[in-house]
Amino acid sequence: MTDALYKATILDHHKHPRHFGTLKRSTHEAHLENTLCGDEVTMQFKVEKGKVIDVAFSGRGCAITTAAASMLTEAVLGKSLAAVKKLTSKDVDKLLGVKVGPAREKCAYLGLETLHKAFS
């Protein structure tokens, strides 16, 4: 099956999520659920001198939720807080390399929403 949504990079992040786990000490964190299916994501960040110096996420979810959150952790590590706060759904689409379509947007953007909640 050649399927853009389930391409190798997304499946790789789903099966081997990056920065999966918890931080002992975080400066910012948040938890969100997708009420449609009960998927949940917790994101933790350690920010020092305006930079994200550590990040972790945990929770449970479908391949899209997990892969998008995993990719997001890679994208924000080392970035300035100002840059992280500016991330949008378009950035997530770029990370995934595909537009997920309306039925799966909640999955794809759950990590991003959690991130923004942590910094709000």
Partner: peptide
């Protein structure tokens, strides 16, 4: 396989199934 992933993959094959909590949390 998360049911949402399954539903998406089945949709690609022309098969419409439901996935979720079926309003019975």
């Amino acid at each position: 396989i998360h049911p949402h992933d399954l539903a998406t993959l089945l949709d690609r094959e022309g098969v419409a199934i439901r996935s979720g909590h079926h309003c019975a949390q």
